[in-house]
């Protein structure tokens, strides 16, 4: 069972120590530009007739005789969207990358819900295959977990750009878009992320890969079967080809990290052989949320 009682305890523990993950400076800090009825002081402005006297700064008036009005930043709840890759390539590895992806998604969603943020999950492969609508409150976590557990790997042509195109057209508030995927997208992952950025979403990448994908060991005459497309390719894998593969894979990984760095996006790259709580803690440490 992917989400058991022990998992929930770990979520609670993570939520207690990570209040500031989404309010922190790394994942995303989004405060509304609107000034309003918040409690956090922003600045002063000249009093104009009709303004609410309750916001007058009487101390300044007493000292200097100027009528200034105190302005407060109005807080609003954060919208966190999880774009979860459910393509069949995510089923690769032992444990499958998909398991870690769902666990991380659940953990981050729980933390966000505990912080009274709004959380939505969009499961996709070649298209959006399931949607957990925006929700709020810790009590919704069980529904979310059930949703995640019911997800199945499917699809034969992952295309993040096409998914994001339909995602951004939704009438919804902008917010944090956490993409949890291996990013093995033949059409390129950059187009989808570019689209998110352009539509003022704050993308954050969590890229998961299997060590066997990074350092394959097979040699000789082999039929390579693409688990996503079921396509077969007869190849002769030599040591030289392995070296070249490693170079290409490392280049791809560096490209993902470079993309995040270039646009100031949060980017977490991991293998599937780590515990989700370790991964979340690592992210929180990187964000400075915990020591």
């Amino acid at each position: 069972m992917l989400f058991d009682g022990d998992f929930l305890k770990k979520l609670e523990y993570l939520s207690l120590i990570s209040r500031r993950v989404f309010r922190g400076s790394v994942l995303a800090q989004r405060r509304t530009k609107q000034m309003g009825g918040g409690i956090e002081f922003a600045d002063h402005r000249e009093y104009t007739p009709g303004d609410d006297f309750r916001h007058m700064d009487w101390n300044i008036y007493a000292r200097h005789g100027d009528l200034l009005l105190k302005r407060f930043q109005e807080e609003e709840d954060l919208h966190v969207y999880f774009l979860l890759d459910c393509s069949r390539s995510m089923g690769f590895g032992n444990p499958a990358k998909f398991d870690l992806a769902r666990q991380v998604t659940a953990a981050l969603a729980y933390i966000a819900l505990a912080d009274l943020d709004r959380v939505g999950v969009i499961a996709y492969s070649q298209e959006i295959i399931a949607d957990f609508p925006l929700t709020r409150g810790k009590d919704r976590i069980l529904s979310l977990l059930r949703f995640l557990e019911r997800l199945e790997l499917q699809g034969s042509d992952t295309n993040l750009g096409r998914i994001v195109s339909s995602f951004v057209l939704r009438p919804q508030r902008r917010g944090l878009a956490v993409v949890v995927s291996d990013l093995f997208d033949p059409n390129g992952y950059e187009r989808g992320l570019d689209l998110l950025r352009h539509r003022t979403y704050e993308p954050h990448l969590i890229q998961i890969h299997d060590p066997a994908e990074a350092r394959p060991q097979m040699l000789g005459e082999i039929e390579l079967v693409d688990v996503e497309t079921d396509s077969v390719r007869k190849v002769t894998i030599t040591e030289r080809a392995l070296r070249e593969y490693r170079r290409v894979f490392d280049q791809f990984q560096a490209g993902v990290a470079g993309y995040g760095k270039k646009y100031g996006l949060g980017c977490t790259q991991t293998t599937n052989d780590v515990n989700f709580e370790d991964l979340v803690l690592r992210m929180m440490r990187a964000a400075g949320a915990v020591n």
Binding site: D182, M218, I222, D226, T229, V235, A241
Partner: peptide
């Protein structure tokens, strides 16, 4: 030949097509 499932052949395609 021995069948070897891989998560994607996009990297192998890139490697082998160069040969």
């Amino acid at each position: 030949l021995r069948r070897q499932p891989v998560s994607t052949v996009m990297f192998w395609t890139q490697v082998l097509d160069e040969q």
